[in-house]
């Protein structure tokens, strides 16, 4: 049994100009101890699908799914109160902007201890000890004195460490990291990622890493799910994905990596992710795809089999002759 199993998840937002589908029929599954990376451009619905899982979307969002199970428990059937017992304890999430994700009015110690008080039933002294231990674990120097500092008195990197300490406080079984390094310096980025993967190895929790950085994916993930315009377009183990991408979008993303560039000019994907009003009729990637033909432009493709990385494409790349036939 998978730790997390989501099938056919869709999220619609009611906006002043009509409904907008931000996530479209996405499947996500994570096993115990697995590191899954979700990649895609801005606006591809990576964060929204995870926020939907956490129940953190505003009321304008309508969430539908065939299956949404965590450890075999149907999350959709739970009362808000029962769901709050899981969210924050067994499933934890860290966000993109550490500076604005911590409450400026409370000390970091209070904010870490709050999670412990809520879920762990610890007394005051134990909470204090555990908070120091957690801050030590995430590599904050002099944790005892740092407990009483406010978020604005620390750097972005330190704040992200606090966020991580807060999220792992209750020994979660699944940690969702939503672009945890985007707002940080390059040197700090590597440290934070090392910390996250290290913690993942030590505790054996599942980790979902949302990112748009292929380098981060290559170094940290075991399996990769590529999303485009709200749809999952490909899902493969990391090694296979880099070796044989099946969806033209994945191939284009990989080709755009500076490390892989062969010519002097870096290859790019022309155009932008379709928005609310310019959604194509057929394949969503067809306006930007180098291989698209009339069939792509008129008929939306359905995902291929797992031997082709579930690629949502009429003409998957790198298909061996047998599969093609």
């Amino acid at each position: 049994m998978a730790l997390l199993e989501i099938r056919n998840l869709s999220v619609d937002f009611t906006t002043a100009s009509g409904a907008f589908r931000a996530v479209d029929a996405v499947d996500v599954s994570v096993d115990k101890g697995e590191v899954l990376a979700i990649v895609g451009e801005s606006g591809s619905g990576k964060s929204v699908s995870m926020l939907a899982l956490m129940g953190l979307l505003p009321w304008t969002a309508t969430i539908t799914a065939d299956v949404m199970e965590f450890e075999g428990r149907d999350l959709r059937a739970l009362t808000p109160k029962a769901r709050r017992k899981i969210v924050g304890k067994d499933i934890a999430m860290i966000f993109q902007e550490p500076m604005s994700s911590l409450n400026p009015c409370f000390t970091v110690g209070f904010q870490i201890k709050e999670a412990l008080r809520l879920h762990m039933n610890m007394d005051r002294a134990t909470r204090h000890k555990r908070a120091i231990e957690l801050m030590d674990m995430v590599g904050i120097p002099a944790p005892e004195s740092r407990l009483n500092t406010f978020p604005h008195q620390m750097s972005g990197g330190m704040n992200q460490r606090v966020m991580i300490a807060m999220s792992i406080a209750c020994n979660p079984k699944l940690l969702i990291a939503d672009e945890p390094t985007t707002a940080l310096d390059v040197t700090i980025q590597a440290q934070i990622l090392d910390l996250l993967t290290g913690l993942q190895r030590d505790t054996g929790m599942g980790l979902i890493l949302i990112t748009h950085d292929m380098g981060v994916v290559a170094e940290n993930a075991e399996r990769v799910s590529v999303q485009y315009a709200g749809q999952k377009v490909e899902d493969q183990p990391v090694y296979d994905l880099f070796a044989r991408p099946h969806h033209p979008y994945t191939a284009a993303l990989l080709a755009a990596l500076p490390e892989r560039a062969t010519s002097k000019l870096l290859p790019t994907i022309p155009g932008v992710v379709p928005g609310q009003f310019d959604r194509p009729k057929g394949c969503l990637f067809s306006p930007r795809c180098a291989y698209a033909d009339d069939r792509c432009r008129s008929t939306p493709p359905i995902p291929c089999g797992s031997e082709l990385g579930l690629a949502r494409c009429h003409y998957p790349l790198n298909a061996t002759e047998e599969v093609k036939a």
Partner: peptide, 23 residues
């Protein structure tokens, strides 16, 4: 953003609105 964090912690509506937001 920090209200989202508070909700992600699993705080009750009172904890979110009455403590984190009101302050």
């Amino acid at each position: 953003d920090y209200i989202r964090t508070a909700r992600a912690k699993g705080l009750s509506p009172y904890g979110i609105n009455g403590i984190h937001a009101l302050r």
